[in-house]
Design a protein around this nucleic acid. Structure first.
Lengths: 236, 236
DNA sequence: TTTTATCTAGATCTAAAGATTGATAACAAA
DNA sequence: TTTGTTATCAATCTTTAGATCTAGATAAAA
């Protein structure tokens, strides 16, 4: 830990950018810093992944806009290696969706190519200290996008009331099992009641949720905050 | 817009904090600023909501740790009023879960009571300009929490491969309809094929996903990144 | 050209799901 | 006490769902 405090060990950096000139520019810039060392460069994501496996750098500066394999999936692959390599994303645009996805899959920082070199150096230092670095402007971008995601959801759910509230405790338990793909027989076994009783409950659930079959009931439950899913979910 | 550029109009602020002394302290501090005006204070969330309705301030400084109705649900209620009121959260702790939830429900900023008064003033100015303000430390906290949420998920899914990849295009379309709760007959109608063909596809889907019925297939699809859900989802 | 994958579809069958009606018991609220 | 809610169960019936086997058409790959 605190490797950057160790005067004998420089921060090992790998650069990934499909633009070779840009690659050289950043390398020169970073090598001016006495405690940084660019140990390898790549113009292609697949090569980059192999270099990371081989050299296990401290930091990877990853351009996200690349042909063939894109930077985002490269980040995902590197993250799955679990080498503790810290990845900082680099792009030309401040597209909030890109920022969001990069941060989601584990990038420790995100900076624009247009930003001052001092900011790049600062970002690397911060990330090396275990922090996550987003410049104020990008951070603002990120949060707007983040909040919008949730707002859309709450707006669409706020119009019609949540019908789940009308379920009785027993109906709740039955629905819980339905959301696990259990059959009538299975529900009966697990709740120690007869199958016909289960059918009665299920029919009542259908009426209360205004649906016609178990699949729709399960979908309603999942889309309206039924227990079950405890983690963040996001489409690709 | 750009109200803070208008020299005739001060930024109207409402303070909410159950600690009366603290309330007075902040009010004095903010009133020293010539372009700020604390138009009301409240020691209770319900009163605060009524004050917001009545005076429609630019900014609400909301303490989150309050008895009775807590600050988070107060924020939610104010957001649902859709008055464009900008809310900045205020607490004693940098609990990442609290920060995450506050930002999720629409807080435009988050600062600690222990932070310097200059930072509070800066936060208000930034938020008044339409930005979202999180001090670097809290921002880092937020992102760690944010990334952890996604990491837990990807780790649990990474063990077994995603079986959805083996579905053919047609099977994909059928499953898509299943995840909307459509019956065999309905799928047949929508895809202009016979019901028996649908059954054939569905059986193939079951085998590929290693499930026994449509409910389980739908659950598998939703839990493994199938299209459909386009928004963030989070448990309560 | 043969093989393979995909989409299509029919026939047949069993099992499960779902609708409906009616009934008993417990319990709490009015 | 009556009324309402909830949970339980039976009987009956219709409709889907699902399994299995077979098979033709097409297009791409080997």
């Amino acid at each position: 830990m605190r490797r950057n405090m160790d005067y004998n060990k420089k921060t090992k950096i790998i650069l990934v950018d499909d633009n070779f000139d840009h690659l050289l520019g950043i390398r020169e810039l970073l090598n001016l810093e006495t405690n940084f060392e660019v140990i390898a460069t790549a113009t292609n994501a697949n090569i980059a992944i192999n270099l990371v496996k081989k050299y296990q750098p401290d930091i990877v500066l990853m351009d996200i806009n690349m042909p063939e394999k894109d930077g985002l999936s490269a980040i995902t692959e590197i993250e799955h290696l679990n080498l503790g390599v810290k990845i900082i994303s680099l792009t030309g645009y401040d597209d909030p969706d890109l920022i969001f996805r990069a941060m989601k899959i584990g990038a420790k920082g995100y900076i624009l190519k247009t930003m001052a070199s001092a900011q790049l150096i600062y970002a690397i230092e911060e990330v090396m200290q275990g922090k996550i670095y987003l410049p104020a402007g990008l951070s603002s971008r990120f949060f707007e996008y983040f909040q919008k995601s949730f707002k859309d959801e709450s707006v669409s759910n706020q119009n019609q009331e949540n019908l789940l509230q009308y379920l009785t405790q027993r109906e709740d338990e039955v629905l819980e099992l339905l959301t696990q793909g259990v059959t009538y027989k299975g529900v009966a076994r697990q709740l120690f009641i007869s199958e016909t009783t289960v059918k009665t409950h299920v029919n009542n659930i259908f009426q209360k949720l205004q649906v016609n079959d178990r699949t729709q009931a399960v979908l309603y439950a999942l889309n309206n905050g039924f227990k079950n899913r405890k983690k963040l979910k996001m489409a690709i």
